[in-house]
Simulated scan of single mutants.
Amino acid sequence: MLKEIEIQNFRCFEQIKISGFERVNLIGGKNNAGKTALLEAIFLNVVPGNTSLAILRYLRREPSKAIEAMPDRAWDNLFYLLKKERFIVIIGTDDNKNINKVEIKVEINSPDSSIIIAFMRNEDAFNGLLEIVPPRSLMRDRSSAIDEVPIIPSFIKISGRELTEAYDNARLDDKDSEVLKAFQILDPAIESVESFSIGEPTLYVRRKGEKRLPLSLFGDAMNRVAHIMLKLVINKHKILLVDEIENGIHHTSQREFWRVLFRLAVELDTQIFATTHSLEMLQAFADVGLEQNQECSSAYFELARKLKTNQIIGSRLDLETLNYALEHQEGVRGE
Results as ranks from 00 to 15, higher is better:
170 A>C: 09
102 V>L: 13
240 L>H: 02
96 N>V: 04
309 T>F: 07
11 R>L: 04
115 I>W: 00
307 L>F: 04
184 Q>V: 12
177 S>V: 14
167 Y>P: 10
166 A>V: 02
37 A>D: 04
170 A>N: 08
145 A>Q: 09
274 A>N: 09
84 K>S: 09
89 V>D: 07
238 K>A: 09
308 K>W: 02
299 A>R: 11
8 Q>M: 06
43 F>Q: 05
78 L>I: 09
1 M>N: 11
241 L>K: 13
53 L>I: 13
39 L>K: 04
204 Y>S: 03
136 R>T: 13
164 T>G: 05
85 E>K: 14
59 L>R: 01
142 R>H: 04
281 M>Y: 04
234 I>D: 00
315 S>F: 00
257 F>C: 07
224 R>S: 09
20 G>Q: 12
38 L>D: 11
326 L>C: 07
211 K>Q: 10
118 A>H: 11
294 Q>V: 06
148 E>A: 12
35 K>C: 06
33 A>I: 04
248 G>I: 14
317 L>Q: 13
321 T>P: 00
14 E>R: 13
111 P>D: 08
68 E>F: 04
31 N>D: 10
26 L>E: 06
208 K>H: 07
198 I>W: 05
93 T>C: 06
42 I>S: 06
230 L>C: 04
281 M>H: 02
160 G>H: 03
252 T>P: 04
332 V>S: 00
305 R>Y: 03
332 V>M: 00
57 R>F: 06
279 L>H: 15
333 R>N: 06
92 G>W: 01
267 E>S: 14
144 S>T: 08
227 H>W: 05
223 N>F: 01
264 L>G: 06
116 I>S: 10
292 Q>V: 10
222 M>C: 07
32 N>K: 08
111 P>M: 07
48 P>E: 01
38 L>F: 14
27 I>D: 08
276 T>N: 02
248 G>E: 13
248 G>R: 15
285 F>C: 09
281 M>W: 06
100 N>C: 01
172 L>Y: 11
26 L>R: 13
310 N>K: 15
251 H>T: 14
99 I>C: 05
272 I>T: 08
2 L>G: 08
237 H>R: 13
43 F>H: 08
114 S>A: 12
312 I>E: 12
39 L>M: 12
250 H>G: 08
323 N>M: 14
115 I>Y: 01
